[in-house]
Nucleic acid binder design. Structure first.
Lengths: 239, 239
DNA sequence: AAGTGGTCTAGACCACGTC
DNA sequence: ACGTGGTCTAGACCACTTC
């Protein structure tokens, strides 16, 4: 008579404990966690069990481990965040990093489609960021970003937003993006595209509709990017 | 004085042994491998070590494991291969499965760009497959597929190619695709696009340039897909 | 009941980085 | 020399499947 209706392995519980402590900011980005031995003793489990947890969080890119040094909170540094979630490249090769063109930030009430995508309450507010980014100095991307305002209080007061917003989210607001869902399509350039990124009206643009999810599972950012498609590709490896 | 110039952990060597046996077809797709205990004994390592290897191959989707039953060679069934490497969907939701429109297969000498992409010798031959695929019954995708002919001898004699070629590659030619590199861009529909998938000339199409890599690392397929972009997206989750 | 993968432990030793 | 993560082992027990 073994019912075991809700069997949950020990490492699962330990995983949740560690995640909670990471999310609460017990260790800052770049800082080291206690060693495996110490964590194991502290939580009353064996080294093998805590190891399984730390390895899982490393696979999720929440932690980084260095043999001989320790286990650290992963830093969403500019470069790292860039190469992880920004996937534009030249055909056949070199990954690109965008630089900032112009930007515009405002806080306003959420509209219906935004509430739906971000799963917000009726009276919720959002931060809207619209900006133009350059590739090799040429205007190439239009971005419209919508954030759940409750998580990013005061972001509109930051004058110069960094290149990679995800490192800002982590450093200033404690929001770690771990997953994004993207939908790509091809569309024709509009008059606005022409004005902002200089493409001819009716030329092809790649449109990326992205929903970003943070560590304690929550949808926090909706981003629409329109990218000029001349001599430029979205590069991805599936495994 | 410990030089350890080429230190390689035991599980690495075991991994290569198991991969070799899988590639040589010692077990057929769907068939069970020996149990962990038996494999461990056979290879002279502990259960923990063989376990690490089998878990890695499971992560690579080469094996599938079922508690209480055993470890099996993963089958690239139609549905599975579809959902793994075919990423078209309706906006906001439902993944789609294509069906076959028309197809055309021929074997010919490799051209220069094909030799370069597939890393083929000067005198190599390739299989060229061009086909049109339907989504919900409507012509939607033009595919041009180029294969290294030496691995797929006789494929041109197969009259009706299956929906997912990757399951065919595995079942009939022992080629297991494990990775693909894709480059996406937006382009304008050509006269050929109009003829074959019915889009207006000058409307936007999503172009996917894919290079597929099989298990003992080798580039085996180059595929160019042109997809109509009305009410259709390429859906992907980044982690 | 028997066999499989999944979990968990305790302990040993190794490679790496730092002091 | 020391502490860290990385590897490897041996053994126990658990949950799941099949007979």
């Amino acid at each position: 008579m073994n019912e075991t209706p809700g069997f949950r392995p020990l490492y699962r519980q330990v995983y949740e404990i560690v995640v909670r402590r990471v999310v609460q900011g017990e260790w800052r980005p770049g800082e080291a966690l206690p060693s495996e031995q110490n964590l194991a003793r502290e939580l009353g489990v064996s080294q093998g069990t805590i190891r399984k947890v730390l390895d899982a969080l490393t696979a999720e890119k929440v932690l980084v481990r260095h043999q001989g040094k320790g286990t650290f909170i992963a830093e969403n540094t500019q470069e790292r965040a860039q190469f992880r979630f920004f996937r534009m490249a030249r055909p056949g090769g070199k990954r690109l990093s965008p630089t900032l063109g112009s930007e515009n930030v405002r806080v306003r009430a959420a509209r219906a489609p935004e509430r739906e995508r971000l799963e917000l309450a009726r009276e919720a507010r959002v931060v809207e960021i619209s900006r133009v980014r350059l590739l090799d100095g040429v205007p190439a991307i239009r971005e419209l970003i919508v954030l759940a305002a409750d998580l990013f209080a005061g972001i509109e007061k930051i004058t110069e937003l960094p290149n990679s917003l995800y490192s800002l989210y982590q450093a200033k607001f404690g929001v770690t993006i771990v997953t994004t869902h993207e939908e790509l399509s091809a569309q024709l350039a509009t008059a606005d595209d022409h004005r902002q990124i200089g493409v001819d009206i009716g030329s092809p643009v790649l449109v990326i509709d992205r929903l970003a999810v943070c560590l304690p599972e929550r949808k926090v950012e909706w981003r629409l990017s329109r990218v000029r498609s001349d001599n430029l590709v979205y590069a991805i490896t599936l495994t």
